[in-house]
Amino acid sequence: MTEPAPALEVAGLHFTYPDGRHALEGTDLVVFDGEKVAVLGPNGAGKTTLMLHLNGIHTPTRGTVAVGGLPVVKANLREIRRRVGIVFQDPDDQLFMPTVGQDVAFGPANLGLRGDELDARVADALSAVGMSRHRDRAPHHLSFGERRRVALATVLAMQPDVLVLDEPSANLDPASRRELVEILLTLEITLVMVTHDLPYALQLCPRSVVLDSGMAAADGETRTLLADAALLARHRLELPYGFDRRLLEVDGVDAARRV
């Protein structure tokens, strides 16, 4: 055996919507096992479109996507969707079953799990996000932050190799935001996070890729990219008012976890 295939490999990806709009124009992205990568970009940069290619919801107009060496093509979709778990931006889109427990069971049941094994998956996933007590509640009775955590659990229950999060911090209050970071930092998993929330990317992902007009415009250490004011301005990215720039200067992991 030669060296293992990357967790994710996107090469020369082009995608055009049926109405003729070009969303991706030659995107490249390689993510290795265990990496945590933020895909940064302004609204309309093609972030969500890219995300929907990672598990084969969209089929590329041109280019290829592979997950752990397995090409994303129709014949492999079942295995691809086990390997890549997507947490969507609006938890109300993701949680549709009458109870939290049933919703978390939906994915693993689609993978063919039944009985005790299924139960154990649900219990583990709910405990990973600290929602075990809410197993029998209806999703629409939970707070927004709780719903986002349950949405994460519905994907964790499938034990994916790669976790993809779409704007995980959107609409969260500061406490829910911090709770979600704490959960995500405990997960030992390859993580791709699509966002325009730069401090959140800094907190969670050592590496970032800037996506603009359907192409990867920059790729490197998150701290270095965020310190490059000209680069951010070129791609309509901005650090929020009051952001402590010292966070970008300190070394190592501490800096990334201090916020």
């Binding site: 919507y17 109405d19 969303a23 609204n43 940069a45 093609g46 969500t48 479109t49 929907l52 089929t59």
Partner: peptide, 14 residues
């Protein structure tokens, strides 16, 4: 009829 352009987040079924 043709679908008008949708923004980045709108769901577009494959």
């Amino acid at each position: 009829t043709r679908a008008p352009s949708r923004d980045d987040t709108a769901g577009v079924p494959a």
